[in-house]
Design a protein around this nucleic acid. Structure first.
Lengths: 165, 165
DNA sequence: AAATCAAAGGTCAGGGATGGTCAAACCGAT
DNA sequence: ATCGGTTTGACCATCCCTGACCTTTGATTT
């Protein structure tokens, strides 16, 4: 009762991410087999890939059709905020939408650059409700704020308690 | 002598707060189901949330639409100092200057509610350079952002999120 | 080779399931 | 009668999932 019932898409996402972890960030799947396993339409797999394994989130998806067909998912990690900053500078202009910003923040979190609380904090800032401005000013402000937040994280000593041991 | 008849909104408020108590300050509901239970329009639920489960009262609310949608209500950690709640309620008006915001953030940090990085993050957001707006919009935005940041952090898992391993 | 077939995966529009917004109606207390 | 807090309903936005139809690739047949 406390947890929301996960959607099928959520389950497939978790399944694939677990596979990725066990396979060092690189897996190949058969669309039909996976669909059969979850008892859904094959196109559902595409939906999951399109919404949860995007480039913004740090994944690359290639595929091949026909006999011997496959879908390959590769995860790219941002191993440090330094990298993240560079990536941010390159890939993001002066404008940034909320989904783009969230994807970026979540990615930093998944890659261990941010604690869950820091992720929550940054997502709160980037929310379109918080940034009560008309477009395109809102997207501009969001981009500026995200840059500053990443910079702040960069300049502050990592708070990784685990490293102390 | 006689208490005013409680409105439907009051009843829903009580109901939700009881749920929160039983669930350690974190519940997820279906808007339609709850509305059906009280025999009211679904939007009534939004009204209750907007008027009674606000940040300055110590709650944060997130939601998701579409299939398997939900509304999640989280009551701030009880460990957050009382003065902070008071601050959220009264002292932070609709307007907030940079020094005021920084003082608030630093004090939260000193009280152990925020890590040094979280302090740095929040200060970066609250900086007048980041909020490139004219007054009084800037002070208004700053107040809104601070509220949201505090809500995000205080409603996120216990302060030491790293102990999970 | 060329033609054909079979076996993947890709696309897209659409329907259903949620929740969100907002203005207007409603209602109770002054 | 007015004012502020309620309550509603019409309309909107988002997310999920499917099925019909399309494209590509490799193997088989001619």
């Amino acid at each position: 009762m406390v947890k929301p019932m996960p959607s099928l898409s959520d389950e497939i996402e978790v399944f694939l991410k677990r596979m990725l972890e066990e396979a060092a960030g690189r897996v190949e799947i058969r669309r039909q087999r996976l669909a059969a396993r979850f008892g859904c339409a094959p196109s559902q797999i595409n939906y999951v890939l399109e919404t949860r394994f995007t480039v913004d989130r740090g994944y690359s998806v290639e595929s091949r059709r026909g006999g011997r067909g496959y879908i390959r998912i590769v995860k790219f990690s941002l191993s440090s905020p330094e990298w993240a900053m560079e990536y941010l500078g390159d890939r993001i202009g002066d404008l940034l939408t909320q989904p783009e910003a969230e994807a970026f923040i979540e990615r930093l979190g998944e890659d261990g650059c941010l604690s869950p609380r820091e992720v929550a904090l940054m997502k709160a800032v980037v929310d379109r409700e918080a940034l009560a401005l008309d477009l395109p000013y809102r997207d501009r402000l969001r981009a500026a704020l995200l840059r500053r937040m990443v910079a702040a994280v960069l300049s502050c000593p990592p708070v990784d308690d685990r490293a102390e041991q």
